[in-house]
Simulated scan of single mutants.
Amino acid sequence: MSSTQNSSSASVFDNSNYEGPPCHCSQPIIPCISWTDENPGRRYFNRELHGFVVWIDKDRPCLWQKRSLLEARDKIRRQSHEIKALRDAVDKANAQVAALELSRTTGSKIEFLKAVEELLQQNVIDSDKKFRSFVVSSWGGFLLATAVLVYV
Rank of each mutant, 00 (worst) to 15 (best):
A99Y: 01
R67N: 10
K109G: 05
I83L: 07
R132D: 11
G107A: 09
A99G: 07
A93T: 11
V54N: 07
C62R: 08
E118Q: 14
H81M: 14
A98D: 10
A89W: 02
V116A: 10
E111F: 02
E118W: 06
L70F: 03
R132V: 15
F131M: 11
E111R: 06
A72E: 15
W64N: 10
W55L: 11
D57H: 01
Q121R: 13
F52Y: 14
Q122I: 08
I125Q: 10
A72I: 10
L113P: 04
L86Y: 03
L119G: 04
K114I: 08
A85L: 11
Q96D: 12
L113N: 10
T106F: 03
E111Q: 12
W55R: 08
L100H: 09
V116W: 02
F131L: 15
A98H: 01
R67F: 01
L100N: 08
N94P: 01
R60M: 13
K66W: 09
R87T: 01
L120Q: 02
R73W: 05
A72D: 15
K109W: 01
L63Y: 00
H81C: 12
R104V: 06
Q65K: 11
R67T: 00
E111W: 02
D59H: 07
W55V: 08
L63S: 05
Q96K: 09
Q96Y: 02
S127A: 15
K114E: 15
D57S: 07
K66I: 07
K75I: 05
R67V: 04
A93P: 02
A95F: 00
R60C: 14
D74W: 00
V116R: 12
Q65N: 08
K109Y: 02
P61G: 04
R73E: 11
D57Q: 07
V90C: 09
D59L: 09
C62F: 04
D128T: 06
Q79N: 13
K92W: 00
R67S: 07
L86P: 00
L100P: 00
K129M: 09
T106P: 01
Q65V: 11
W64F: 04
I125P: 01
L70S: 05
E117Y: 00
Q79K: 09
D126T: 05
E71A: 08
L86I: 02
D91Q: 12
Q121D: 14
A89M: 13
D126I: 03
